[in-house]
Write a protein that binds this DNA or RNA. Structure first.
Lengths: 266, 266
DNA sequence: TAGTGGTCTAGACCACCAA
DNA sequence: TGGTGGTCTAGACCACTAC
């Protein structure tokens, strides 16, 4: 099970590349084996102690090299079991940044099977940020829908939506599509303002997505409004950075020396 | 200069929080001091050896805690000198995702002083990816404009633009605005397709931006076209994640059960 | 129960920076 | 030149996993 021919491929001398630290050399060597296909996804990496002994380095050095590979997503470790070459990242999904689309329809259009796992569906008193975003009073109630989105079975994003309880009194009744449930009550979002940034994945979201904590992710906060202009949805989502590309079509902005018709931001 | 009252604020007993590792306790303690303002930006953190001795932990443990703080941008270290509390992140810039704007005009509109540092301005044979993006032959020549963008003196983004040399034969003549230079030759971009993703900052770009390598960043690849549809600009940019929010206004997509007029992507 | 990764220690040498 | 961070070692104990 462990490295049969492994130590024919990596030898103690291979680790010292110029003045680079030992752990960098070991990291590069392992990274190369994976890139070259000598170590395939799912394959086990020899144990830390075995690596240390056979390569004549300390276990701490081995661990630093492995930590780097875990951080970049090339290796996953299972405590008490071992380290394994990670599955390749899923095919990237392109998401448009100008249309308000439903995840399930979006995936269907791409020929992929959308899935969702409910992490929480409940009604509660709205938090300050929810009240602010939705224009509610602090004692108003909101339905919370927290779910993990998958494509072809692979976790893609976690989504935390808040909808005024007046609009969605029974979140348990929501099926695959939140927007469909809202439309059924005549309160479908028509337009949204979306704010996108890159952040390191927090521990909790990383666990759900099956990615190393601290890996880069796209964080999106969105406030959607119905036809009358009322805020009907406040959603915060974390998207795996290795799984998503966002595409936008831009057109030339009006010349800035011409008077600005929309109220300019501070 | 070093921690006068520091060790009145952090004591050996404070580090063990339940079953959490020691280095997590120390990291949280330091993070708390910074958040509470007891350690202010620019302040020096006591040396690793002093921290280790006075807190009765090993230096390795101290280093793990500091490494975490460096990774999240709270602390910067200068080799041979010491560790210091990092400057707070710059105020976030909101960038629209639907209009093709010029960085300099964008900043001016926000009352901030835009700056740029040229990292490279040259003409050369186009690389395969540039040829592909711009629709050129492999032996065609492109002007390359590589610059660091700053707002109020702080590094915000690095930008690597490629423009067909036919359009911009003398890149050295480009001033503050690339688009202005292109417009002067009647080849201003009118629209663009932009592709955005989150990635870990590579070493080189991290150095330019003054951020820790591996920190999250927004990576954008953009192909702009002039009125006739010819590609006139291929730009790849890295934006500091802690400095940028991208905002987009979304409208409801047409119902998917209605026939899809645009050719659906694979 | 045996082996794995996770944490922690004490001590060492080096390269770099500032006085 | 003295202090700083950067690297590396050898050895230890723990919690978890698989058998």
């Amino acid at each position: 099970m462990s490295g049969a021919g492994f130590f024919d491929l990596v030898r103690p001398g291979d680790l010292r590349a110029g003045h680079a630290p030992l752990y960098v050399g070991l990291r590069n060597a392992l990274r190369g084996l994976i890139a070259a296909g000598a170590l395939r996804p799912g394959d086990g990496v020899p144990g830390e102690r075995e690596l240390a002994e056979r390569l004549s380095v300390s276990r701490v050095t081995v661990r630093r090299a492995l930590a780097a590979l875990v951080a970049e997503g090339a290796v996953t470790v299972r405590r008490g079991s071992g380290a394994f070459v990670a599955a390749p990242p899923p095919a990237r999904i392109e998401q448009p940044l100008s249309r308000l689309t439903s995840f399930s329809e979006d995936m269907a259009r791409r020929g992929r099977v959308a899935g969702a796992v409910w992490l929480d569906r409940s009604v509660g008193i709205c938090a300050p940020d929810e009240a602010m975003a939705l224009g509610l009073s602090p004692q108003d109630r909101v339905a919370r829908l927290h779910r993990l989105r998958t494509a072809d079975g692979q976790p893609m994003a976690v989504e935390r939506a808040a909808v005024p309880a007046m609009i969605l009194p029974e979140p348990d009744a929501v099926g695959a599509s939140l927007y469909a449930a809202m439309a059924a009550r005549g309160m479908a979002p028509l337009r949204a303002l979306q704010r996108l940034s890159a952040r390191s994945l927090p521990e909790r979201e990383a666990l759900h997505l099956g990615v190393a904590p601290g890996a880069p992710a796209i964080y999106i906060a969105r406030i959607s409004r119905a036809g009358g202009g009322e805020a009907v949805e406040f959603t915060r989502s974390w998207y795996r950075a290795d799984a998503y590309d966002f595409v936008a079509e831009l057109t030339l902005a009006p010349r800035p020396d011409a008077p600005c018709q929309e109220g300019s931001a501070p």
